[in-house]
Design a binder for these strands. Structure first.
Lengths: 219, 219
DNA sequence: TGTACATCAGTGAACGCGCGTTCACTGATGTAC
DNA sequence: TGTACATCAGTGAACGCGCGTTCACTGATGTAC
């Protein structure tokens, strides 16, 4: 907002159009999945002709990469906000769930089926690390009354990559990994509709798994 | 094998070509994902022209549906075989992991990101139930020394759909759901490559989560 | 304030591609008498 | 065993489509003097 004035009208207009392009792209992804994203279709929706989009994005791949980046960024911000406020893993869990439900295809763009060829740029994996770091911080703040397991030996010393080089107690790392994989397990199956027709409330299943994670004698 | 003789040469040939088409389709899916599957490309690979495939499949959608069906069927068979032999949830877990690792894209065809429009035919969801039933059976055979949780109340009476109408103890159902969601969580993240660069052995993480599930004071 | 110039958003035509799918047809394989 | 017919796998041409992307161009907006 502070630099709004420093931008020329042209720059503002550019930013605005770029935003609308991405918005339409998200709508399209929500409708038919990421692989069906089409530049021409977006242009048509916006009332302009295909080649015009090349003023704003280098091409289809660049647009998709930016959408992926935005998705990671959005989750990282949501996570950080929840982490700073309550600093509780439960808060993180509910933030994650809310974020996932608000746009399933965006969630899948981050954690879903990978395109075999594609490899994310470094800055995106950096954001992924940021997300893990937030989670690790919250886990490190929990009382580490977990009994040691055989897995701890393997975890010893690992995870320093995400936590800005700080050493991480294996118990916290283990909890973070369980948090991540278990909640992703419930969420991805829920979003994919695998619970429909089972007469089961995914929210309760999610809560049950979360209880097992955050409870005092967890694991 | 018994009915090999009853089939005419033409029928055998048909079956053979159908099999090769599917095989090429799987190769293509493994290379570029399911959304990139192309009938013409398959035909070209087989040295025949595009329209020839319509002798064997009604069209692209029919082929994909059959691939999905085969994937479910394959997992159900693998699961059933593991369940009949050892009848142990650990055996099921390792069968699942082996099956997933042997063909990641096939795993994702079953449990991966859904195509927004697509809805699986009834016979496929029936196979999905069969898979769950095998898992439930194994869980029901475990000692049910789990402490009751608030989630049990919601589970009471549910799950009869999969278990041929038999009533299922909530503890077994709960364990089956945790088994499914937790292992899927680890597996899908592993197959998607989310652990690479973390210096972490997914096999050990999988084993750790499995221990938490099958251990005596699990949860 | 007005004029000359530069910047840049957007257009329309075009290229080449691959897709799914249909259709009329050829030619080989199997069947019935 | 031989002939007449039916079945059916596969071809080649064609249709219509939408895609990403390039290119030369128009016209409006901003900038410099």
């Amino acid at each position: 907002m502070a630099d709004r004035d420093t931008k020329s009208p042209r720059e503002r207009y550019r930013a605005q159009v770029r935003t609308e392009i991405k918005q339409r792209a998200w709508e399209q992804i929500a409708t038919a999945g990421a692989s069906a994203l089409s530049l021409n279709a977006i242009a048509k929706q916006m009332g302009m002709s295909g080649p015009a989009l090349y003023r704003y994005f280098g091409g289809r791949d660049e647009l998709i990469t930016e959408l992926v980046r935005d998705a990671y960024r959005s989750l990282a911000d949501t996570f950080r906000a929840a982490g700073e406020a309550g600093a509780d893993v439960t808060a993180l869990a509910h933030a994650l769930r809310g974020w996932a439900l608000s746009d399933p295809q965006r969630y899948f763009l981050v954690y879903g089926t990978p395109v075999p060829g594609y490899h994310a740029p470094d800055d995106i994996t950096a954001i992924a690390s940021e997300i893990m770091a937030t989670l690790l911080d919250a886990c490190a703040r929990l009382p580490s009354d977990l009994p040691a397991t055989a897995f701890d030996a393997h975890l010893e010393g690992r995870g320093a990559d995400w936590a800005d080089g700080r050493s991480v107690p294996p118990a916290a790392l283990r909890r973070a990994l369980s948090f991540w994989t278990r909640l992703h397990g419930v969420l991805s199956l829920e979003l994919a509709g695998h619970f429909t027709g089972m007469g089961l409330d995914p929210a309760l299943l999610f809560a049950a798994e979360l209880d097992a994670l955050a409870g005092p004698s967890a694991d």
